[in-house]
Design a protein around this nucleic acid. Structure first.
Length: 488
RNA sequence: GAGCAUAUAGCUCAGCAGGUAGAGCAUCUCACUUUUAAUGAGAGGGUCGAUGGUUCGAGUCCAUCUAUGCUCACCA
């Protein structure tokens, strides 16, 4: 730091302003290198951060890195003049510079820019942890990379400068979101925004973050889901709405959980969960193709194929297939006995729906590697889902499981206002008994439903986990720019 | 919430039952007008995460704390 400040002062003594206002960039590193034709001199103006410097006396080589990649610059005293070359002594790795010059190929074969003019664009005061790289047989070997996870997450800006694969992941994330948005727009859904600060939280089972509004002197919750607001909009007459929503859940953290995360929900009037399944498999195939150019994705040792259509199993069929046990039509006591035979230890307070869920989560879900729709859940755990049209005790809900993990959750939405009220009141009763994740009764939501909501299909997709799947990352912190951390 | 692990130079890491801190890269000086882990010669750089304790002596042993990672639990 001290050395850098001295270099900064030296530049000012030489009459160079180290923080100028603009630079007329005409070309970018990667396309320049890729489209270079031998013998062709293209005049260029490039800008970027200095990543390496090799000083040869009266000539120097250095690499700059811009948003597309790196390109080497060749700087000769005879070409840029005494003044500039002298000033270059005070340029450091990490500085952002602009270069005018022309393209050429060096004796060793690297496409480079022969500088005719060099400008400091921003002096860096902190040394960046650049790794040494060497190409051996076309493979890049990186020495001493900036790899400390804590530092990478705390200083993502440095991580992004130094670790190109990190940038890749986030560009893929953006592409994924863009693909979804284009797809939903092509279905004529309306992109909307709904409140993050909610007086009653609902739409999911989770503990909320609580805050306070001073002027109104009232408690507000950061949303744990936006479902109930999107349904109000369906009541309001939109045929389809969607929202990319940051949601907040006050729960533990792990490589699959961050307290704030991104959820896409969309709702389409006059459709049911069968329609939604077809839509989802088309969407996921499109995402994989758009982001990776293939429907194949590597997850750990497994290779997953996201090509539609996906296998469909009811929850009862899935449990039977993987445990050999029949759960359809069984009473709570019978289910508890089955769980016992399988070796599951269960809290005696939980009901039959929860027992099935435990069996499924323990013995089935981890084994579902290829994309599989699991349909028809027990009613107890789905207070916002429409009863199954033909199977008692079940609801029209599905989850898509890929690589042993849930990636989305969808229903034929409950639009019977009387049924809905009863279910929310059951939730409220659970909450009374100390289940602080049970939903409260949102009277305004019920009022909306009472005005009449068309039959509707709805879905929630965890964008972070989907990004993990598509980009092959195994921690949610690697797909969120600034994951939640304790203060330093 | 529980267990295990980690914390030493800007970065990546060594540091051998306790004896006063080291390497590579980065930085600085000199040389070098096609180098690419440039090269050659030289130099500087550290409250060893924090606080206590044991000891003649602690980076090293013990305790507590803090942060992080991994696993489990929790969590649609």
């Amino acid at each position: 730091m001290r050395q850098r400040r001295e270099n900064l002062a030296k530049l000012r003594e030489l009459g160079i302003e180290p923080y100028p206002y603009s630079f007329p960039v005409t070309h970018y590193a990667k396309p320049l290198v890729e489209t270079f034709v031998d013998g062709e001199k293209t005049d260029v103006a490039v800008a970027g951060r200095i990543m390496t410097i090799r000083n040869m006396g009266k000539a120097s080589f250095f690499h700059i890195q811009d948003s597309t990649g790196k390109i080497q610059i060749y700087l000769r005293k005879d070409d840029v003049g005494e003044m500039t070359y002298k000033a270059f002594k005070y340029f450091d790795i990490g500085d952002i510079v602009g270069v005018h010059g022309y393209t050429f190929r060096t004796k060793t074969g690297e496409v480079s820019v022969h500088a005719t003019k060099l400008e400091m664009l921003s002096k860096s005061l902190r040394p960046i942890p650049v790794a040494k790289e060497q190409e051996i047989d076309g493979k890049k070997v990186v020495y001493d990379a900036f790899s400390d996870k804590e530092q990478r997450y705390r200083m993502r800006y440095v991580d992004l400068i130094v670790n190109p694969h990190v940038r890749e992941v986030f560009m893929k994330r953006a592409k994924l979101i863009q693909t979804i948005r284009d797809f939903l727009n092509s279905l004529n859904l309306l992109e909307v925004e709904t409140p993050i600060l909610q007086p009653v939280y609902g739409g999911a089972s989770a503990r909320p973050f609580t805050t306070h509004h001073n002027a109104l002197d009232m408690k507000l919750f950061l949303r744990i889901a936006n479902e109930l607001y999107l349904k109000r909009l369906i009541v309001g007459g939109f045929d389809g709405v969607y929202e990319f929503a940051k949601v907040f859940r006050n729960e533990g953290m792990s490589r699959f959980h961050n307290p704030e995360f991104s959820m896409l929900e969309f709702y389409v009037a006059y459709k049911d969960y069968n329609w939604m399944m077809q839509t989802v498999e088309v969407l996921f195939e499109k995402i994989a193709m758009a982001v990776n150019g293939t429907t194949l994705v590597k997850v750990g040792e497994h290779e997953v194929n996201l090509k539609a259509p996906y296998r469909k199993l009811t929850m009862a069929e899935a449990v039977k297939e993987y445990t050999g046990k029949e759960i359809e039509g069984k009473s709570e006591d019978e289910l508890r006995a089955i769980a016992g035979e399988l070796g599951l230890k269960l809290d005696p307070k939980i009901g039959s729906g929860k027992i099935i869920d435990e069996i499924f989560g323990e013995f089935v879900e981890p084994k579902l590697i290829q994309p599989t729709f699991i349909m028809d859940y027990p009613i107890e755990m789905s207070p916002l889902t429409k009863k199954h049209r033909s199977k008692a005790g079940l609801v029209e809900r599905f989850e898509l499981i890929v690589a042993g993990k849930e990636v989305c959750n969808a229903y034929s939405e409950l639009n019977d206002p009387i049924d809905q009220r009863e279910r929310l009141e059951e939730q409220a009763a659970l909450r009374e008994r100390g289940d602080d994740e049970a939903m409260g009764v949102d009277e305004d939501f019920l009022r909306a439903i009472e005005f009449g909501m068309p039959p509707t299909a709805g879905i929630g997709i965890g964008i972070d986990r989907l990004t993990m799947l598509i980009t092959g990352q195994d921690s949610i912190r690697d797909v969120i720019f600034f994951p939640t951390m304790k203060p330093e």
